[in-house]
């Protein structure tokens, strides 16, 4: 499991090396570079940021400072199940921050992070366009309206049961 993650990162860094050659070594290119890396690989890893810094000949912490300033950049690979908690005006008024906090506590990660097993990632979004259902959460492209702490528990539990079921199916297939 760990090896594959490392292989993946190696492949990604190699790809970024080739991507960087298309960009001029100009500080103004910093954000376009970060954007295209994220577009292709979904996130910016610490090593990727250092490569960008070396390419543009600026210090890595400058790159980190710029990247962390903008909401559009993420620093963790997205999880298998992507959870988006809405904090738009309507959801905020109806306690969207409580829902987000529930997800965060349940999965023991903060918004923008991914669980160590890469199963779940949480993001905060600003309005998904169905304010009548506030507070809203989106899990894997399915919209869940009128969210409540009990629903958060139910959702996560549902995924866990699903995972367990698949595991058993696999085991029974193997034993056959």
């Amino acid at each position: 499991m760990n090896d594959t993650a490392e292989d993946e990162e190696d492949a990604m860094l190699k790809d970024i090396t080739s991507m960087l050659t298309y960009f001029e070594k100009h500080r103004g290119n910093l954000i376009p570079i970060l954007q295209s890396i994220q577009e292709k690989h979904q996130y910016l890893s610490p090593l990727a940021l250092q490569m960008v810094a070396r390419h543009l000949k600026v210090s890595s912490c400058d790159v980190y400072g710029v990247a962390t300033f903008y909401n559009q950049f993420r620093f963790h690979p997205p999880g298998e199940h992507q959870i988006k908690a809405c904090l738009g005006t309507a959801c905020h008024v109806r306690g969207g921050d409580i829902i987000l906090e529930n997800f965060e506590r349940k999965l023991d990660i903060k918004a923008g992070e991914t669980t160590p097993d890469r199963e779940f990632s949480i993001d905060r979004v600003a309005c998904v366009g169905c304010c009548a259902l506030a507070p809203v959460a989106i899990v894997d492209d399915t919209v869940y309206g009128h969210m409540a702490p009990s629903k958060v528990e139910g959702l996560i539990l549902g995924f866990e049961i699903e995972k367990e079921r698949e595991k058993r199916k696999k085991q029974s297939n193997e034993s056959k």
Binding site: P46, L49, Q50, S59, C61, Y64, G65, F69
Partner: peptide
């Protein structure tokens, strides 16, 4: 350098 923004702003040693 400075990292993040708003109330989360910190000084970061990220990198080298």
């Amino acid at each position: 350098s400075f990292a993040k923004k708003g109330f989360d702003t910190v000084i970061s040693f990220f990198g080298e």
